[in-house]
Design a binder for these strands. Structure first.
Length: 192
DNA sequence: CCGCAGATTGACT
DNA sequence: GTCAATCTGCGGG
C-alpha cells in the first residue's frame, strides 16, 4: 500500500505514524526544497481539540474532502499550519505536520525564514516555522499532494520501534490524548 | 538554560 | 468580544 492509500483507508492513528519518514517536496522558483517528516499530530472530528469537531465550515472543509490533500489554516494572527487530510470523504480528519528534517535547499529555507545564520535545526522545527521555510500559505489549502509544487512522496517508512508517542502540544482540550508521534532521537523535532 | 509576555488577524459564539 | 493545533525576544538564574 502506498502512503496515499494508507491515508485513505487505515485508522487515523496508523496513518499519522505512517507519515513519519515520508518526504515533502516544495518546488519554488525552479528549485526543489526537500524535507522528511519527523513529527506529526492527529486530529479527528470525534476529538474536541480538532477544528472539525463542530462539523464542516468554510475554513475546515478540506478535511472533509478526500485524503492526501493539504489543509492549511491561519492562526495567532500570523502563522500558517500544514495538515495532510486523511480518512474517507465526509470524514473530518487531518494530520498536522509539526516538524520536518531539511534535506535539500536549506539556504533558500533560511532566506524564507529570515534567519541570519543558517541553523538547520531552526528551519522546520515547528508547524509555523516549516510553512514559512517552504513558503506555504492559504493558497495551498485543498491542494492535491500528488501534484507539484507541493508533493508528498513515499520516502522511507519507519519501524514502530523508532516512534515515540506523546500527548499533543499547544491545545487546551483533550490534552491527554496520545496522538503526537515523532522519530526517536531525531534532532529536528519541535520539542522532546 | 528557562519562562513568559507580546504580536496581530480571522473564525466562531 | 474572545481566543487560537505559535514564535520570538527579553529578562532572570
Amino acid at each position: 500500500m502506498d502512503i496515499f492509500e494508507i491515508l485513505a483507508r487505515e485508522p487515523l492513528e496508523v496513518a499519522a505514524k505512517a507519515l513519519l519518514g515520508r518526504h515533502i517536496e516544495r518546488m519554488l522558483d525552479g528549485q526543489t526544497l526537500a524535507t522528511r517528516i519527523v513529527e506529526v499530530e492527529a486530529y479527528h472530528q470525534s476529538d474536541p481539540a480538532s477544528h472539525t469537531f463542530r462539523g464542516p465550515s468554510p475554513r475546515n472543509q478540506s478535511m472533509f474532502g478526500p485524503a492526501g490533500h493539504a489543509y492549511v489554516y491561519f492562526t495567532y494572527g500570523m502563522h500558517h499550519c500544514l495538515n495532510v487530510t486523511a480518512g474517507k470523504e465526509g470524514e473530518g480528519a487531518g494530520i498536522l505536520i509539526r516538524a520536518l528534517e531539511p534535506l535539500e535547499g536549506l539556504e533558500t529555507m533560511a532566506v524564507n525564514r529570515v534567519q541570519k545564520e543558517l541553523n538547520p535545526r531552526n528551519l522546520c522545527s515547528g508547524p509555523g516555522k516549516l510553512t514559512q521555510a517552504l513558503a506555504i500559505d492559504l493558497s495551498f489549502n485543498g491542494h492535491d499532494l500528488t501534484q507539484a509544487p507541493l508533493e508528498l512522496k513515499e520516502g522511507v517508512s519507519v519501524s514502530e520501534h523508532d516512534i515515540i508517542t506523546t500527548a499533543r502540544i499547544g491545545i487546551s482540550k483533550a490534552i491527554d490524548t496520545p496522538w503526537r508521534f515523532y522519530l526517536k532521537d531525531n534532532p529536528y523535532i519541535s520539542k522532546p
